[in-house]
């Protein structure tokens, strides 16, 4: 019987971690774009656009990510589209992330006092000019800490994609456990790696919050 050294385990886990990181980045960046579109639709004057945005956000916030992954993976192959696990994982995570970020950002936009809208309206600015020059620059400042904080959720959510066979850190852990019969060691290292990814993120979210000093920017 082959024996595995601890280094063998860690090395293989780290190889799989690349995919966890890549998937997280794809989900976060793609989700950011989806969220921005949903946010603009959600706050626009157009009723149909607002409804569509609300439907999207509630659908993806109101169902488990696991179901979304299953539906993208199995559902699409039922209608004849063959979706590889990485694509299903990326699509589901992008849309899931987008739905949450859209609501986080909407809260930030709505936190901008009404007086800012009124003052910029009185200066003859249009809706997009107000958004671009007055509201979003201020909302962005408020949005940074919760957005970075949410990225932790995204990293952890990638673990679910192991269920549809995408080989990232969690899936790799299961495979290595099946070969080594050392679940505690393998999952222990996997947990440490997740922690090493997430902890700096949540720490920087806290630092940014203090640095941008959102609630009390007055000196």
């Amino acid at each position: 019987m082959t024996t595995f050294t601890t280094w063998d385990i860690v090395r293989n886990l780290l190889l799989a971690t690349q995919w966890t990181i890549l998937l997280s980045l794809v989900a976060f960046v793609g989700g950011g774009v989806a969220a921005l579109l949903a946010l603009l639709a959600r706050t626009s004057q157009n009723r149909a656009a607002r409804r569509l945005a609300v439907f999207y956000i509630e659908l993806f916030q109101g169902t488990p990510l696991l179901m979304q992954l299953f539906l993208f993976f199995f559902g699409l192959s039922l209608v004849g589209v063959n979706v590889p696990p990485w694509l299903a994982a990326a699509l589901a995570l992008i849309l899931w992330t987008g739905a949450f970020l859209a609501e986080i950002w909407r809260g930030c936009v709505e936190a901008i006092p009404r007086g800012q809208w009124e003052a910029s309206s009185s200066l003859a600015m249009s809706y997009f000019e107000q958004m671009r020059h007055v509201v979003l620059p201020q909302a962005l400042r408020i949005a940074v800490p919760p957005t970075v904080g949410f990225s932790v959720q995204v990293v952890k959510a990638t673990a679910l994609t192991s269920i549809i066979g995408f080989v990232e850190l969690s899936k790799a852990s299961t495979m290595i456990t099946n070969a080594t019969f050392q679940p505690f060691v393998v999952y222990g290292f996997a947990a440490l790696i997740y922690f090493a990814l997430c902890w700096p993120l949540s720490k920087s979210s806290q630092l940014l919050e203090r640095k941008l000093n959102v609630a009390h920017r007055n000196h």
Partner: peptide, 17 residues
């Protein structure tokens, strides 16, 4: 219309950024 009349508010409403 707003190009012809300006408005000043009780709460100043300067752009803080």
């Amino acid at each position: 219309l707003r190009l012809k009349v300006g408005m000043i508010f009780q709460g100043f409403n300067l752009f803080p950024h």
